[in-house]
């Protein structure tokens, strides 16, 4: 656990305490504090209100605040745990925690299932996957004939939709990602293992002395 100077406490006023967040995640207190520097940078990039809105999120992802993107919208909605239309610091840290190398495979599988269950029906449906595939093709300016897209969808559902009901349920998804582990590559950010060395620019503000635990 880390001790926390009053100046740093002021720094975090109005935000969840990093010692509490560290106790609930795979991050150390100093890593939570480093994430706070990142959070401050993103949350003040358009409106300096201590919250990340969708424009700021898009700006951070694409360096373009006006770039609407299906996937960015979905990730934003999943990070916006309290459904306020903005991401606060606690949501930011807890959501990024799933991307930590030490986070459980189950948490990563669950997050990725919710990510692709665009309509929140509890199933990943063929139409949703087609919508995402077309969005990816547009984003990367790749062109595929419609029957090629249908062939890819056929093959995907042939592999994933074991009970052939036309949609992928949570169990089928878990089995599918076990057979295709590369699908969870997006769910791990290796440098979250030690942000304080990978992002030294965030450390100089650090005011939390980690007491050896």
């Amino acid at each position: 656990m880390g001790c926390f100077h009053s100046t740093a406490a002021r720094e975090f006023s109005g935000h969840e305490n990093p010692v509490k967040l560290a106790s609930e995640t795979a991050f150390s207190v100093s890593e939570v504090e480093a994430l706070f520097e990142l959070f401050k940078r993103i949350s003040s990039s358009v409106v300096d209100d201590g919250l990340i809105n969708k424009e700021e999120f898009q700006l951070a992802l694409f360096q373009n605040r006006k770039k609407e993107n299906l996937f960015a919208n979905r990730i934003f909605d999943l990070f916006d745990v309290k459904r306020k239309g903005v991401i606060d610091f606690g949501d930011f840290v807890r959501s990024l925690n799933v991307f930590h190398p030490n986070a459980s495979l189950e948490d990563k599988t669950d997050f990725s299932f919710r990510l692709y269950d665009m309509d929140c029906t509890g199933f990943i449906e063929r139409q949703e996957v087609k919508q995402m595939l077309i969005a990816l093709l547009c984003e990367s300016e790749m062109k595929l004939a419609d029957d090629t897209i249908e062939m890819i969808l056929d093959q995907t559902f042939n592999d994933a939709d074991v009970d052939r009901d036309g949609k992928i349920d949570k169990t089928e998804w878990s089995d599918f990602v076990i057979k295709n582990p590369s699908l969870l590559k997006i769910m791990t950010l290796p440098y979250l293992r030690d942000i304080t060395t990978t992002f030294p620019s965030f450390v100089f503000n650090s005011e939390v002395d980690e007491i050896a635990t």
Binding site: I75, M132, T148, N180, S182
Partner: peptide, 25 residues
């Protein structure tokens, strides 16, 4: 070759799904 990939392999190539971009200056 896209046709040999499953849809999710293609979808996961989206820039928006690489949250490492959040950390870029």
């Amino acid at each position: 070759q896209p046709t040999s990939m499953n849809a999710f392999e293609l979808i996961s190539m989206s820039r928006a799904l690489d949250l490492g971009n959040l950390f870029e200056e």
